[in-house]
Write a protein that binds this DNA or RNA. Structure first.
Length: 406
DNA sequence: TCTGGGGTCCTAGGACCC
DNA sequence: TCTGGGGTCCTAGGACCC
């Protein structure tokens, strides 16, 4: 069953995407920047200088030096050719006069909680897709389908407008919503009328509205697959839909090939999932300058320990213990090496994590300078389900009791 | 002037077991 | 002497997403 054959089984799934989220949150704080090119990114990229009187002074992108990338750019900045993921040094050449603001994730998470809570008031069945996106299952709220002759989608449109209004009231921010019978199509059409968009499509609209789009717009077709498709003469979703399923399976393997064929025809049955347990928790850091494994051994050791301590406190705060820890290295030539090791006890304590991560690190070759070090916890279980090894203090307490008995 | 940090999922080979 | 076959776990790497 695709959920598409009968209108009585049709789902209404919305994809909601906040417009230029981080940058828009910053504009709430610094309204004088509205309408100007603004870029958010970098670690300690100059926070605005607050002077007792007179206007705030902002850092220009042009004077940036470091290894940061753009997290978000306002639409005015995007018009200058910069986009998220681009190195700040490169962006500084393209848009030297743009304002650069440091990312403030605590603030963005605050607004993220606010907009999600506002949506839940209207439609409770939502799936988290990161800080600025959600899917919403509107099927139960909207009823099976609309009947108005004037606007065949009057029911869902009304709900979507209520959601947009609730989000704006709660945050002062705009969002774009795409609505269709499944997640795949909704994700595609939330992009179509950004910013502040609302796009509703059904299977009947796939050929006209979806097939002209580049295949790379589909979630799951990244740079590698796009390039391979292009080499086969396939650039749009329509061209992908016209391709023989057998040919796709031959070039991309049974699973991915079959998936490509399905998504090109707008087929997707994934449900909206309201909660899922995390599979891994990690911390990593890119150094300000490349570090040599031997020459900078002490510095690397301190960073390594600090990452393990942060990971341990993340696990404790979130209530998980891990059976497996791993390390990640990125060398100066951008090669990535990972090593994992599975422990014989549940891990949460920073010292234990540091010990096992150290064992994993010993398995990795260290032939050249490093630019990144990371630590990851996998094979997670809720802490109440884990039998923890005795901590130092528990062992000490038992020892004291034993002495007392003697 | 190269390219952050947090994740998920898939594949493939070897170990190990029956 | 040239040798099975399936299932599961562990590990490493890679594509992809926000």
């Amino acid at each position: 069953m695709t959920g598409l054959e009968s209108p009585f089984e049709q789902r209404w799934i919305a994809h909601l995407d906040m417009d230029a989220f981080y940058a828009s949150v910053e504009l709430l704080r610094y309204p004088e920047l509205r309408g100007k090119p603004v870029v958010v990114g970098g670690r300690r990229a100059g926070a605005p200088e607050q002077r007792p009187s007179g206007p705030r002074r902002f850092a220009s992108l042009g004077i940036y030096s470091g290894r940061g990338v753009i997290t978000t750019a306002t639409y005015e900045a995007r018009a200058l050719g910069v986009h998220s993921g681009m190195g700040l040094m490169k962006a500084a050449v393209l848009a030297p006069d743009a304002t650069l603001l440091p990312a403030d994730f605590d603030e963005y998470r605050k607004y993220s909680r606010r907009f999600k809570a506002a949506v839940k008031e209207v439609a409770p069945k939502i799936e988290d897709r990161g800080i600025d996106e959600i899917y919403i299952d509107l099927s139960a709220v909207a009823g099976a389908y609309d009947t108005s002759d004037v606007d065949p989608h009057a029911g869902v449109r009304d709900i979507a407008l209520r959601i947009k209004s609730a989000v704006h009231k709660a945050t002062g921010l705009t969002c774009s919503i795409g609505i269709s019978p499944n997640k795949l199509l909704s994700k595609l059409c939330s992009e179509l009328e950004k910013p502040n968009g609302l796009t509703i499509i059904t299977v009947a609209d796939i050929a006209a509205r979806i097939w002209p789009l580049p295949a790379s717009r589909i979630n799951g077709i990244g740079p590698k697959a796009s390039e391979k498709l292009a080499s086969l003469g396939i650039r749009t979703i329509g061209e992908l839909a016209a391709a023989e399923g057998e040919m796709l399976r031959q070039h991309f393997g049974a699973n991915y090939g079959a998936w490509l064929h399905r998504v090109a025809h707008g087929q997707d049955e994934r449900p909206v999932v309201m909660f899922s347990e995390p599979k891994s928790i990690s911390r990593e850091t890119t150094f300000e300058r490349d570090l040599h494994p031997r020459l900078h051994r002490d510095e690397l050791g301190k960073l390594f320990t600090r990452l393990c301590e942060q990971l341990s406190s993340d696990l404790q705060r979130k209530g998980y213990a891990a059976k497996t820890v791993g390390i990640k290295l990125r060398f100066d030539d951008f090669r990535i090496v990972t090593r994992v090791i599975t422990a014989d006890v549940w891990l949460q304590d920073a010292v234990a994590i540091r010990h096992w991560a150290g064992r994993a690190l010993k398995k990795a070759p260290l032939p050249q300078k490093l630019r990144l070090l990371g630590v990851r916890a996998e094979n997670l279980t809720r802490i109440e389900d884990a039998i923890m090894p005795e901590t130092g203090s528990a062992r000490e307490a038992r020892h004291q009791r034993t002495l007392h008995l003697i």
